[in-house]
Design a protein around this nucleic acid. Structure first.
Lengths: 182, 182
DNA sequence: TTTACTGTACCGGCTGGACGGTATAGTATC
DNA sequence: GATACTATACCGTCCAGCCGGTACAGTAAA
């Protein structure tokens, strides 16, 4: 079994994703992690500490993801869109959980978010060589993530492989159009 | 001055957009609408009633928007992407406000949302004749909206006209690619 | 034209419950 | 004896919803 700290953070994520920020109370997180409230407070002295820890986890996961994106043999654009469907990966989960907090107006969550979005856009621009194409590709991926953020909680958002392949061909088309755009 | 009922609903929207669901308490909504708490409760007997009223407003606005989309001389695809940048229109505001509620796990808000999304996708498919292209176009617009949902509150999300035009040209490209896709 | 009454719009205090955080006493393991 | 907890009681704050009351416009019989 994972350490209590990890389990608590996982539970925090879970509840944020499934039930929203409001439901993610200290007590419900503790209960979900099978820890007493006192136990939770022992590891995370405040709710803010919980959010900070989630932020660090997210930052680390997204940095690793950008490396994978840059190195993907299929290309960064395809990688970004392909991995934007919600697959319940560690990154997906941390991202959607943080989205819940950001939507709630949480300042640190919003900053985390804005920073990560900017990093991704830069990485796409660097890989694709065009600001506009990078933007279009990022928007498509973001649209996918946006669906995830709404429906990850309840209701499977199944995307067929065939459908995804057709979408990826359109991504190829966008890339091929690059005739020295800014 | 608009009727108290409209003013209350506008204030509810405002606070949801600017400060998130958590901040949209009955008291703060009443204060923003320049009405006492009792006065608010007179018009909307519960918070649920406020959400329902917002849902009706959103449904009406989105239905009107789909008509405009179908009739736009520039084409539905361009219309959808073009109008997806946040411009603080009545529809934008109602949509982002409802998004805040949906993200919070509010069941009715999620249903409202899912229904409207489906309508838009259908409308795009009908206009573009291709499921895949409609999906790609919708994702790009949704990506734009998703940015709006995060940054509409604080921080201008300015999109230059030139940048938008380049994006729209990519939308044209997607449409022109339609070779009898599903 | 005064009196009695009705309906609409609204005010603001109160209550009960939930939540974040504190405190503390006790337990089990290394 | 230090670490990693459990269990429980408690405090202050915030919030939804309730409730008693006010203000006022209309109306209609006496």
């Amino acid at each position: 079994m994972a350490s209590s700290k990890e389990r608590i953070l996982d539970s925090f994520e879970n509840i944020l994703i499934r039930d929203g920020e409001r439901a993610a109370t200290m007590e419900s997180v503790a209960a979900a992690a099978d820890v007493s409230k006192g136990g939770l407070l022992y590891h995370f002295p405040s709710k803010e500490a919980l959010v900070d820890a989630l932020g660090e986890r997210l930052l680390a996961l997204s940095a690793r993801d950008r490396e994978l994106m840059a190195a993907d043999p299929d290309g960064a654009a395809r990688y970004y869109v392909r991995t934007s469907v919600y697959e319940d990966s560690a990154l997906d989960r941390a991202l959607v959980a943080m989205a819940r907090l950001a939507q709630q107006g949480h300042p640190k969550a919003q900053q985390n978010f804005a920073r990560i979005q900017a990093f991704w856009l830069e990485a796409l621009e660097a890989a694709l060589g065009s600001h506009t194409v990078a933007r279009a590709v990022k928007l498509m991926g973001d649209g996918l993530y946006y669906e995830a953020a709404f429906f990850a909680g309840s209701g499977a958002n199944q995307q067929s492989t065939a459908e995804m392949e057709q979408l990826l061909e359109l991504v190829d088309l966008l890339q091929s159009s690059d005739r020295g755009g800014s």
